[in-house]
């Protein structure tokens, strides 16, 4: 495997893990930037020192973030926070990378969910390619599986792609507790964020299923978050889970993607079926044209997990 030079944008959990693990994958990080600072070294930055500085001082170095994007590298890793609508600044980062004929690997869902067509146009005019395995289901190889089968051989994708909502629903069902109780517990455990809106309202899951639909439609149609029918889990009382359990079922926040559309909402599923994963696990079912149903499950979030998907994408681009 030939090593690539990486420019990592974003120093959150995913960006930091990419910096930390890149060497193990045979790659060299030549630039790291967060929203206000950057460190650039064509020979490779000192990963440990950069991460230490980020945690001590809240900056990664002395340089300007623009120096990182404009520096010397083979693959740009876009791991800044997901934003909706214009998906900035992530979209502009990807654009700059592609315009410089660099490959781009995204962990940021915004550009792929909200401006998929534009991304593909930029890619068509570039020597560089984009990959975004990390945007859907963290460490689980969902997009590369679809790529291997070919999008036309997958008729639908459905499943659980938000660990926070799944944790809350599975705890509510197991303990007979109300939503508010379990949410507070999830926040204490760090499973839910202080503002859990994205997760519990189904927006995070919807972005992932929008990306899946974009991939499955293979250019025939483009989807954005606005096209998705989205329901969250905030109004589900414990009694609904009790009634489901009496009937051998449970409730999970399930998304469904087809080349025609996207929906996310609480659904009744068999309690012992493959979709009723517990805790923060994720699962995706792919319906194939000739090979029945595939179930792929695993850890759908987390720094090292998501970084694993990023680095696999990097390796695919430069091998």
């Amino acid at each position: 495997m030939s090593g690539a030079r990486l420019c990592v944008l974003g120093a959150g959990a995913v960006g930091r893990s990419v910096v930390e693990l890149a060497e193990e994958y045979g790659h060299t990080v030549t630039a790291v930037a967060d929203s206000s600072s950057a460190v650039v070294d064509p020979d490779g930055v000192d990963a440990e020192a950069v991460l230490q500085r980020k945690s001590d001082e809240g900056v990664v170095g002395e340089a300007d973030p623009d120096d990182a994007v404009g520096g010397a590298y083979d693959v740009l890793v876009e791991a800044t926070p997901t934003t909706l609508g214009d998906a900035e600044p992530g979209f502009s980062h990807v654009k700059q990378g592609l315009e410089r004929d660099k490959h781009v690997v995204l962990a940021n869902k915004g550009p792929v969910a909200e401006r998929y067509g534009e991304l593909r146009e930029l890619e068509a005019d570039s020597e560089g390619k984009i990959r975004f395995e990390a945007t859907v289901g963290g460490a689980i190889p969902i997009l590369s599986t679809i790529e291997d089968f070919g999008p036309t051989h997958i008729t639908a994708a459905r499943g659980v792609l938000n660990g926070t909502a799944n944790f809350i629903l599975s705890r509510m069902a197991a303990e007979g507790l109300d939503y508010e109780h379990v949410l507070a517990e999830a926040q204490d455990l760090g499973v839910a964020e202080a503002d859990p809106t994205f997760d519990v309202e189904g927006i995070d899951a919807a972005l992932k299923f929008v990306i899946l639909s974009n991939v499955l439609a293979d250019g025939d149609q483009e989807f954005t978050l606005e096209d998705a029918v989205v329901d969250g889990i905030t109004d589900i009382p414990g009694t609904a889970l009790d009634l489901a359990a009496e009937d051998g079922r449970t409730i999970r926040l399930i998304g469904e993607s087809t080349p025609e559309g996207v929906s996310v909402g609480p659904r009744l599923v068999p309690a012992d079926g493959p979709l009723s994963v517990t805790g923060t696990l994720n699962i995706v079912q792919l319906e194939t044209t000739h090979a029945g149903r595939l179930n792929i499950s695993g850890r759908g979030a987390g720094g090292p997990e998501t970084a694993t998907a990023v680095l696999s994408d990097v390796s695919r681009l430069v091998d």
Binding site: R158, D231, D235, I236, E256, G265
Partner: peptide
């Protein structure tokens, strides 16, 4: 609010 099962062939 209706909590529905998965539709069609999906079960």
């Amino acid at each position: 609010q209706v909590i529905q099962p998965l539709t069609e062939a999906s079960q």
